[in-house]
C-alpha cells in the first residue's frame, strides 16, 4: 500500500497540470461552443454553412494531397538512404532533417524565398524565359510549405522502418524473379505500412492544424486554422471559433487514433 501512495505522489504533478490546463480549458471550450446564437447546433456549422464547409473541404483536400506527396517522397528517400553507405550520407541526412526545428512561420518564409517575388524560381524563370513565376501565396505555395514541414518528420519515421527491413527479404524476392515494382508491392511497402500509417497520420494532422505556415502564406486562402483565427480575433465570434476548433481537433485526433490502431494491428498480425 505504501507503494500505491508513492505512485500517487509521482503522478500528482502531471494530474494537477493536466486537469487545470487541459481538461478544464477543453471543457470551457465546449461550453463556449454551445453558447453561440444557434446553441449546440453550432457544432455542425462547419458542415451546414457554405463558407465554413468550403474551407473545410479545401483544407481536407490540401492535407490529403500533402500527405500523399510527402509519403511518396519520403518512401523513396528512405529506401535510397537505408542500408546504403556512401560518403556524405550523414551530412545529407542531417541537412534533410534540419528543418525539423523550424516553426511554421519560418517554413512559410522559406517558401517565400523559393517561390515569392524575389524567390529563387522567379529569378531563374525571369533570367531564362523572361516570364514571372510567383506561387508562394497560392494554394500550391501552401502545399509546398506543408510538404517542406512534413518531409523531414515522415522521412525519419520511414527511415527507421526501412533500416529494420531485412535486406535478404528483397534478395529473396529477386531470387524468385521479382522485378522492382513487384518487390515494392509485395515486400517493401507491406513492411513499411505501419510506419506509413503513423507518419501519414502525423502529416495529415499537422497539415489540418497548421497555422504558422498559413499565417505567413495564406493571405487569400481560408484554411480552417485561419478561419478559427479570424473568427476569434476579427469577428470576435468566440463561440464559432470554439466549435470549429472542436471539430478540427476531433478530425486530427481521430486520424491519429485510426492510424495508430491500424499500425498496431499490422505489427501484431505481420
Amino acid at each position: 500500500m505504501r507503494s500505491r501512495s508513492f505512485d500517487v505522489l509521482l503522478i500528482l504533478p502531471a494530474a494537477i497540470f493536466t486537469l487545470a490546463f487541459l481538461i478544464l480549458p477543453l471543457a470551457r471550450l465546449t461550453v463556449e461552443a454551445g453558447t453561440g446564437p444557434s446553441g449546440f447546433a453550432g457544432f455542425f456549422a462547419i458542415l451546414t454553412e457554405a463558407r465554413y464547409r468550403n474551407s473545410l473541404l479545401v483544407t481536407l483536400a490540401l492535407s490529403i494531397v500533402t500527405t500523399l506527396a510527402t509519403l511518396a517522397l519520403a518512401t523513396i528517400a528512405a529506401q535510397t538512404l537505408a542500408h546504403r553507405k556512401f560518403p556524405g550520407r550523414g551530412l545529407l541526412l542531417s541537412l534533410m532533417t534540419f528543418p525539423l526545428a523550424f516553426p511554421g512561420v519560418v517554413v512559410g518564409f522559406m517558401i517565400i524565398l523559393f517561390g515569392g517575388r524575389l524567390g529563387l524560381v522567379n529569378s531563374l524563370s525571369m533570367a531564362a524565359f523572361g516570364t514571372r513565376a510567383i506561387f508562394a501565396y497560392s494554394l500550391f505555395g501552401l502545399f509546398l510549405g506543408y510538404v517542406y514541414f512534413s518531409v523531414p518528420r515522415v522521412l525519419l519515421t520511414l527511415l527507421a522502418a526501412a533500416e529494420k527491413l531485412d535486406p535478404s527479404l528483397v534478395e529473396a524476392a529477386r531470387s524468385l524473379g521479382a522485378g522492382p515494382l513487384a518487390i515494392q508491392r509485395d515486400v517493401v511497402l507491406p513492411a513499411l505500412f505501419p510506419a506509413m500509417y503513423t507518419g501519414g497520420a502525423l502529416c495529415f494532422a499537422t497539415a489540418m492544424g497548421a497555422f504558422g505556415t498559413a499565417f505567413t502564406l495564406a493571405t487569400s486562402i481560408d484554411v480552417v486554422p485561419m478561419l478559427i483565427y479570424t473568427e476569434f480575433t476579427l469577428a470576435t465570434n468566440a463561440g464559432m471559433a470554439a466549435s470549429i476548433s472542436i471539430a478540427l481537433g476531433a478530425i486530427t485526433w481521430a486520424a491519429l487514433a485510426l492510424a495508430r490502431s491500424r499500425a498496431m494491428r499490422d505489427t501484431k498480425g505481420g
Binding site: I11, L22, P25, G209, A242, S245, T252
Partner: peptide, 25 residues
C-alpha cells in the same frame, strides 16, 4: 487512458488549445 489524455495536445491543433486556455483563464 492517462497517457492518452496527457498526449492529447499532440493530436489537437495548437490553435484550439490556445483558444481553450484563453477562454478558461
Amino acid at each position: 487512458i492517462v497517457e492518452e489524455l496527457v498526449t492529447l495536445p499532440v493530436a489537437i491543433p495548437g490553435l484550439a488549445l490556445a483558444l481553450a486556455l484563453i477562454l478558461a483563464y
